[in-house]
Design a protein around this nucleic acid. Structure first.
Length: 849
RNA sequence: GCGAAAGUGGCGGAAUUGGCAGACGCGCCAGACUUAGGAUCUGGUACCGAAAGGUGUGGGGGUUCGAGUCCCCCCUUUCGCACCA
C-alpha cells in the first residue's frame, strides 16, 4: 500500500491481477447457490457512454455483493453487433461493416476493462459472428417447422428518391429522415414470426413476474399485447345472405347501434357494392383513406370522414335495420375491421354521428346510488333521447333495450353474449392488439434468413447441417434499392437442397431483435458447437436473477425475449415460462445543455456528453462508479456533476488514508481483547458497525445503492470521530476499529472494487477479497440494538423536550417521566391534561386544553 | 384528449411505512494550515426572527393525540398511449 491514494496505479494492479487469477470466470457448481446478474448487451457503436457506465456499475455492484456473500455469480457481456450503423459506416466511409464492428468492439472492450467491470470475458459473444447467428438461423428453421415463421405481403415504408426501405423510426411523420421525401407504402413479401400465438401467455404469465418487474414496464407490456374481451356479433345484410361480423366490448349497448361502420379496406366492401350506383364514389373514398393512412401513418388523428353505402344491416337483437357506412376511423387491422356504431356510448361514434347527423339513442343510464343498492328491475329512461352533449361511456343500467332493460351492464354483457351464441349470431371473443413480428430486413448487416427458392421445389428451408448461411465478406453498399445481398451473385446463386438444381437464396436478413431475444442463454454455454446451448447447463444458471437496462426496451426487446423463451420452452429447451425474475430499468444520465438550463440525456448531437475515459483518467474508475451509484436512486434520472465525482474521490481518499494509518496495527493480532470491558465509545462504534451492515446488506438486496453508500459514509464518519492513535490503541480499541474498518472495506467492494481490494490487502489479507471464505459481514442484531433511547416528548403534537431512557422502560414509567420533565411541567402548568399518548420506544405526546 | 407516476433546503436526495422532517453528499459561509489555494483539515448551513419563539414537505380542505406519508378537490411536471370499438 502506498501512503497516498493513486487510483490509476491501484486500478491497473487489480485489473491485471483479476485477469491473471481469472477471478470472474465461473463454471456451474452445485455446492454454492447461483446468481445470474445480467445487463443489457451494448451495441458496439465504438464508444462507451455514461449510460453504459451507469448500467454496468449497477450490475457490477450486485455481482460483487453476491460473490462476497458466497454466491456463484454469472456475470457475462457480449455485443449486439448486427444493425444499421455498421452499414451506414460502410455507405458513408467505405469501410467494411465487419472490420468497423470488430474495431469498435475491441475499443469498447478496453473501456469496460479500464472501468474494471467484473465480467467473465471467457463467455463474450457477438451477434455478427457465424458461431452465434448460426443459432438465430437454427431457431428460425424451428419456427418455420412449427408454422411460427411465415411469409406474407406487407406494407413497408419506401423512400422513392433513395429507392430504399425505411424503418418506422426512419420514416416518422411520413417523411424520409435523410432526404425529406414523402414516404410511400410499398407491398413487399416479408417474413413474420407468429408472436400472436403467444399473446394470451404474454399477458397471463405477467403474474409470474409481477413482483420483480417495474409496474410501468408491465403496464406497457399489457397495453402492447392489448388483450380485450368482448364479442363478435353478426349483422345480416338486408336482401342478401351475407353478414357483417363486428367486434364489440360493449354488447350491452347494442340497442343503441344506429349504424354499422366498415373500414375502407374491408374485404366485403367490393363484393357488396357489385352493381351499386355508389360503387365508384366509395372506391375513390377508400383509396383516399388508404393513402391518408399511408402518408400519415403515425401522425395525428384525422378528422372523421365517412360515406353511406346505402346498404342496410339488421341488428340481431332488435331486428332494426341500420345503415352501413364506410369510415376512415375504423381500423382494418383490429378486430374484424367493422364496428357497430353506438353514438350515445362511444366517443368516436358520437363524433361521427354528430358530423353526419346519425341518430344518437341512449340505452345506458347512469346508476344512481339507490339503484346500485336495490335490485335494478325497472328504470325508466327518456326514449330516443338525442340531447346528449357527450357520449356516456361508463357502465350503467340498460334502458330502451327490450327485455334486457333494467339490467346492469356487467350482467347484460354476460347474458347477451350467451344469448347471441345460443342463437347463432355471435360469440364471446378475445382480441389482441399485438401483431405478428415482422423480422425481414432488406439489409446486409444481419443474420441471413436461411431459406432457398427453387423454381421446381418452391421455398426450401436450408438443411440444419448446412448452417450457418454465412454472410459474404462484402457487398455493394449503395444505401439504395434492395438488400445489398441481392447483388452478391456468389451468395444468391446456390443449389436447391432438394433437387440440386439451381436456386436462389433469400436475401432478407433478420431484425437484430432476434439476436437479442436469446443471447443470455448462449452466455451459459457460449462455445457449444452442436446446439444453441445444452439444456442441462441452462438449468444451472437460468432464469436470470436480475436484469438491468434502460426502459427504452420496456416493450420491444422485453416482449420478444419473453416470447422467445416460451418458444424455447415449447421446444423442450428450457423448463420455465419467464426468463427474467427481476428487472430494473435504470434512469437516464443527463447533463446541462451548453448555454441553457436544460438537463437532457447525454448525446453527441447536443454536445453534452461526458467521456468515461476522461473521467477514469481524471478521477479513477472507482470514484466514477461510486459517484454514479451514489448520486441518485438507480431508477431516477442522474444529473451529471463534476463536483459530485470529486466528492467521491475525497471519500475514497479519506478511507484509504485511514486504512493506511491503521494497517500495521491491524495486520498484527489484536492482543488480549476483553469484549465485556469495551468502552462506551467502543460499544457505540460497534453498534454503528452492525447497524450499517444490516442497512447496507438489505439496501443492496433491493438495489438501494445510494442509501447504501450514505450508510457507509456515516460509518466512516463515526469511525473518524472514534479517533484513537493507532500506535497507542489498546487491544479492545484495535478490536472495535478492526471490526468497523474491515466491514467498511468489504462493503465498499461492490462500489469501488479496486480500492477495496487494495485496502483489504493492506489490512493483512492475502489472496484478494474472493480468495477465501466469503468476507461479507453479518450483522449481529444484539450488538446493533441501542443501549439507550432518546424519546421525544410532544405537547399537542409539537416537539418540546426529550427524554433519555433505557429501551426497557414501561409505558407507565415513560408517561411519569415525561410529565415530570421540567420543561414539560412549565408548559402544561395551568392546563388540563386531556390525554397522554405513549408509543413505547418511540415518543410521548401530551394533549392539553 | 385519455391514462399513470411524481412534486421535500440553493442542488441530488434521506425519512424502520402514520411517530424527532431534511440522513449522506454537492454547493455555500467561517476558521486553521499555507508563499499560494480550485489542495487538505475543523466548524456552520431549511426559512423568518436580535432572541424568546414561530413557520415549514406544490396549493386548499379533511381524518387523527400526531400527516411528507392516509382521504377529497385543485395546480404543476414527467412519462406512456394516441381513433384498438
Amino acid at each position: 500500500m502506498d501512503e497516498k491514494y493513486f487510483p490509476e496505479q491501484i486500478e491497473r494492479k487489480w485489473q491485471q491481477r483479476w485477469n491473471e487469477m481469472k477471478a470472474f470466470e465461473v463454471s456451474p457448481d452445485d455446492s454454492r447457490p447461483k446468481f445470474y446478474a445480467l445487463e443489457m448487451l451494448p451495441y458496439p457503436s465504438g464508444f462507451l457512454h455514461m449510460g453504459h457506465v451507469r448500467n454496468y456499475s449497477i450490475g457490477d455492484a450486485l455481482a460483487w455483493f453476491k460473490r462476497l456473500q458466497g454466491f456463484n455469480v454469472l456475470h457475462p457481456i457480449g455485443w449486439d453487433s448486427f444493425g444499421q450503423p455498421a452499414e451506414q459506416a460502410a455507405i458513408k466511409r467505405g469501410v467494411n461493416p465487419r472490420d468497423w464492428t470488430e474495431h469498435n468492439i475491441a475499443h469498447m472492450r478496453g473501456q469496460l476493462q479500464r472501468l474494471g467491470i467484473s465480467y467473465d470475458w471467457s463467455r463474450e459473444i457477438a451477434a455478427h459472428r457465424p458461431d452465434y447467428y448460426k443459432w438465430d438461423q437454427w431457431f428460425f428453421l424451428k419456427m418455420l417447422e412449427r408454422g411460427l415463421a411465415y411469409k406474407k405481403v406487407s406494407q413497408v415504408n419506401w423512400c422513392p428518391k433513395e429507392q430504399t426501405v425505411l424503418s418506422n423510426e426512419q420514416s416518422s411523420g411520413g417523411i424520409c429522415w435523410r432526404c425529406g421525401t414523402t414516404v410511400e407504402k410499398r407491398d413487399l413479401e416479408q417474413w413474420f414470426l407468429k408472436i400472436t400465438n403467444y399473446a394470451e401467455q404474454l399477458v397471463a404469465d405477467i403474474d409470474e413476474i409481477e413482483a420483480g418487474w417495474p409496474e410501468k414496464v408491465l403496464k406497457r407490456q399489457r397495453d402492447w399485447v392489448g388483450r380485450s374481451e368482448g364479442a363478435y356479433i353478426d349483422f345480416a345484410i338486408k336482401d342478401s345472405d351475407k353478414k357483417i361480423r363486428v367486434f364489440t366490448t360493449r354488447i350491452d349497448t347494442i340497442f343503441g347501434a344506429t349504424a354499422v361502420v366498415l373500414s375502407a379496406e374491408h374485404p366485403l366492401l367490393t363484393e357488396l357494392l357489385q352493381g351499386s350506383a355508389l360503387k365508384s364514389d366509395i372506391e375513390s373514398f377508400a383509396t383516399k383513406v388508404k393513402s391518408q393512412r399511408a402518408t400519415h401513418g403515425d401522425a395525428d388523428e384525422e378528422e372523421k370522414e365517412g360515406l353511406n353505402t346505402g346498404i342496410l344491416a339488421i341488428n340481431p337483437f332488435s331486428g332494426e335495420a341500420v345503415p352501413v357506412w364506410v369510415a376512415n376511423y375504423v381500423l382494418i387491422e383490429y378486430g374484424t375491421g367493422a364496428v357497430m356504431s353506438v353514438p350515445a356510448h362511444d366517443e368516436r361514434d358520437f363524433e361521427f354521428a354528430q358530423k353526419y347527423s346519425l341518430p344518437i339513442r341512449q340505452v345506458i343510464a347512469p346508476v344512481t346510488h339507490s339503484q346500485a343498492k336495490a335490485e335494478p328491475t325497472s328504470v325508466t329512461g327518456t326514449d330516443q333521447s338525442t340531447d346528449m352533449r357527450i357520449a356516456f361511456t361508463d357502465y350503467g343500467v340498460l334502458i330502451n333495450s327490450g327485455e334486457w332493460g333494467g339490467k346492469l351492464s356487467e350482467v347484460a354483457i354476460e347474458e347477451m353474449s350467451a344469448f347471441a351464441e345460443k342463437n347463432g349470431f355471435g360469440e364471446g371473443a378475445v382480441t389482441y392488439r399485438i401483431r405478428d413480428w415482422g423480422v425481414s430486413r432488406q439489409r446486409f448487416w444481419g443474420a441471413p434468413v436461411p431459406v432457398i427458392y427453387c423454381d421446381k421445389c418452391g421455398m426450401v428451408p436450408v438443411p440444419y447441417e448446412q448452417l450457418p448461411v454465412v454472410l459474404p465478406q462484402t457487398a455493394d453498399f449503395t444505401g439504395t434499392g434492395e438488400s445489398p445481398l441481392a447483388g452478391v451473385a456468389e451468395f444468391v446463386n446456390t443449389e436447391c437442397p432438394n433437387c440440386h438444381g439451381p436456386a436462389r437464396r433469400e436475401t432478407d436478413t433478420m431484425d437484430t431483435f432476434v439476436d437479442s431475444s436469446w443471447y443470455f442463454f448462449r452466455y451459459c454455454d457460449p462455445r457449444n458447437p452442436s446446439a444453441p446451448f445444452d439444456p442441462a447447463i441452462i438449468r444451472q444458471w437460468t432464469p436470470v436473477n436480475q436484469y438491468i437496462g434502460g426502459d427504452s426496451h420496456a416493450v420491444m426487446h422485453l416482449i420478444y425475449t419473453r416470447f422467445w423463451t416460451k418458444f424455447m420452452r415449447d421446444l423442450g429447451l428450457v423448463s420455465f415460462d419467464e426468463p427474467v425474475k427481476r428487472l430494473l430499468t435504470q434512469g437516464m444520465v443527463t447533463n446541462k445543455v451548453e448555454g441553457t438550463e436544460e438537463w437532457k440525456a447525454m448525446s453527441k448531437s447536443l454536445g453534452n456528453g461526458v467521456d468515461p475515459d476522461e473521467m477514469i483518467a481524471a478521477f479513477g474508475a472507482d470514484a466514477t462508479r461510486l459517484f454514479v451509484l451514489f448520486a441518485a436512486p438507480v431508477e431516477n434520472e442522474l444529473r451529471w456533476s463534476e463536483s459530485g465525482i470529486e466528492g467521491a474521490v475525497r471519500f475514497l481518499r479519506r478511507v484509504y488514508t485511514m486504512v493506511w494509518r491503521w494497517q500495521n496495527r491491524l495486520s498484527a493480532p489484536d492482543g488480549d481483547v476483553r469484549v465485556d470491558e469495551i468502552s462506551t465509545e467502543g460499544r457505540a462504534l460497534r453498534r454503528k458497525t452492525h447497524q450499517t451492515i444490516a442497512k447496507v446488506t438489505s439496501g443492496f438486496e433491493q438495489l438501494h445503492l445510494n442509501t447504501g453508500v450514505a450508510a457507509l459514509m456515516e460509518l466512516f464518519n463515526q469511525l473518524s470521530d472514534f479517533d484513537v492513535p493507532p500506535a497507542t490503541a489498546s487491544p479492545n480499541e484495535v478490536f472495535v476499529v478492526r471490526e468497523a474498518l474491515e466491514a467498511l472495506v468489504v462493503m465498499l467492494a461492490p462500489l469501488a472494487p479496486h480500492a477495496a481490494e487494495e485496502m483489504w490487502e493492506g489490512l493483512g489479507h492475502s489472496g484478494g477479497l474472493l480468495g477465501g471464505e466469503p468476507p461479507w459481514p453479518v450483522a449481529d442484531s444484539e450488538l446493533a440494538r441501542s443501549e439507550e433511547l432518546e424519546i421525544p416528548i410532544q405537547v399537542n403534537g409539537k416537539l418540546r423536550s426529550r427524554l433519555i431512557t433505557s429501551p426497557e422502560v414501561s409505558e407507565e414509567e415513560l408517561k411519569t417521566a415525561a410529565l415530570a420533565d421540567e420543561r414539560i411541567r412549565s408548559l402544561i402548568w395551568g392546563h388540563e391534561v386531556v390525554k397522554v399518548v405513549v408509543v413505547p420506544r418511540r415518543l410521548v405526546n401530551i394533549v392539553i386544553k
